[in-house]
Nucleic acid binder design. Sequence first.
DNA 1: GCAAATTTGTCTACTTGGAAACAAATTCGC
DNA 2: GCGAATTTGTTTCCAAGTAGACAAATTTGC
Lengths: 174, 174
Amino acid sequence: MTRPGGSRVTVLPAPGREPQAPPAADPSSLALGALEDSLGFLLRIAQLQAFERFYAAVAGHDLRAGAFTILWVIGLNPGVRQGVLAERLMIKRAHMAKLIRALELAGLVARTPSREDRRAVELRLTPAGRRHVELRAAAFFAPDSAPPTSLSAAETRTLIGLLRKLTGIGEEAP
Amino acid sequence: MTRPGGSRVTVLPAPGREPQAPPAADPSSLALGALEDSLGFLLRIAQLQAFERFYAAVAGHDLRAGAFTILWVIGLNPGVRQGVLAERLMIKRAHMAKLIRALELAGLVARTPSREDRRAVELRLTPAGRRHVELRAAAFFAPDSAPPTSLSAAETRTLIGLLRKLTGIGEEAP
DNA sequence: GCAAATTTGTCTACTTGGAAACAAATTCGC
DNA sequence: GCGAATTTGTTTCCAAGTAGACAAATTTGC
């Protein structure tokens, strides 16, 4: 399982002369070198694959992952402020402003100015917003109930646990 | 480590009445509910955090992750075609066309029409492109040598192994 | 009390990425 | 052969996301 080069993997591509092998018409047989050990690269590919699977599974449910996530978290945290939401979901504040305005225009979210801090805005689901979330929650979380085929159930649990630890998400300061 | 609800985690937010708790001004104390068990959500957050760390670490090296990755893979697979590259790196072909043109204009990549298939284009690094990659490889892969602080070295290896298995990247069909 | 610094959300301009339609070349059916 | 379907890369247009400046409100230093 360990790689030929150990952990010092910054092996440069063979300088100058080319491998005489044909250009490799099959994507899965491309040489990736040290990228195969790169956490950032693997996370990127894994995330894109997961989104692809997700949108393939929920096709036609008019369900956008980002919007649903925002509504879900507002539903669990009524009165949450935009900036707090943005920081936790890793969405830039400028972008969150646009997303929230769209949700407000759609009648799913209510924005009320905070009384404690008159710069801030408190977010809540409207009744329509709550209905929207309730109707789509099962479809949204369905892919998590039937996890990827390439991992066993135990491996999936391990992976989720490690990702929680890596991101600091399921288990904050005690 | 198991969650209160087991694996059937589609618990809807408390309908109607609000938690009387204050709006939670601290992002890390937001309730996320079933999102904390969602592989897609965790992968998304982990990837964004990883990119943030990456760009913080290589600040000023004029190093874009996507462009470097493309150059790196071309360097390892001279003569590779655009579509193959796009599929493996999960970049849409329309986008790849733009990226490759930019790299060609920058003098880093040479595009030569394939003799076998006159629609296709073969990609190679120019000498300048090879120099570019060699100069930046150490900085690009540095974050992988000093992995995240929240995981032990063993956990990081396990995580990388699981991600390889999930994505099918380090270990193709035997 | 009050000027300076910070925070909160917003705006404009820009970059990144994708969907759909397309031309050219290739492969398939027959 | 030869027309139909497919593949390859490109173009155009649009959506998603970011950067940086900004006004208003708040907090901080004194």
